[in-house]
């Protein structure tokens, strides 16, 4: 089962790096989704490893929260795009020194 966990870790790390390097807000969001799914994979793997379904329930909850997050996040991106004509996260940098 270790290979599943390692895969999960790799996917998570890739998601992290994606969040750090990509500038298009929508792609950044996709990377966040990737991270969430990577953690889900780990949870499901643990569920099988330990022989109970709590891991799957946790994955289910993660998914619900991710859905809510996507809805709100995309709405925010839309709003920002509407006012600033840009979907780049770097352009939304007014809140600084």
């Amino acid at each position: 089962m270790t290979q599943y966990i390692v895969l999960s870790a790799i996917l998570f790390t890739i998601g992290c790096v994606g969040v750090l390097t990509r500038r298009n807000a929508i792609v950044v969001f996709m990377c966040v989704e990737l991270m969430l799914n990577a953690s889900n994979l780990a949870l499901v793997t643990f569920a099988r490893q330990h022989g109970n379904l709590d891991g799957q329930v946790a994955a289910f909850f993660v998914r619900v929260v991710a859905a809510a997050e996507v809805v709100i996040g995309l709405a925010i991106i839309m709003t920002i795009f509407r006012t600033r004509r840009s979907a780049s996260v770097d352009d939304a940098s007014l809140l600084k020194y």
Binding site: V19, L20, T21, R23, V89, D90, S93, K96, Y97
Partner: peptide, 10 residues
């Protein structure tokens, strides 16, 4: 505090 979300994420 440069305002770049990605810096904070880093």
């Amino acid at each position: 505090q440069n305002g770049f979300v990605r810096s904070y994420a880093l």
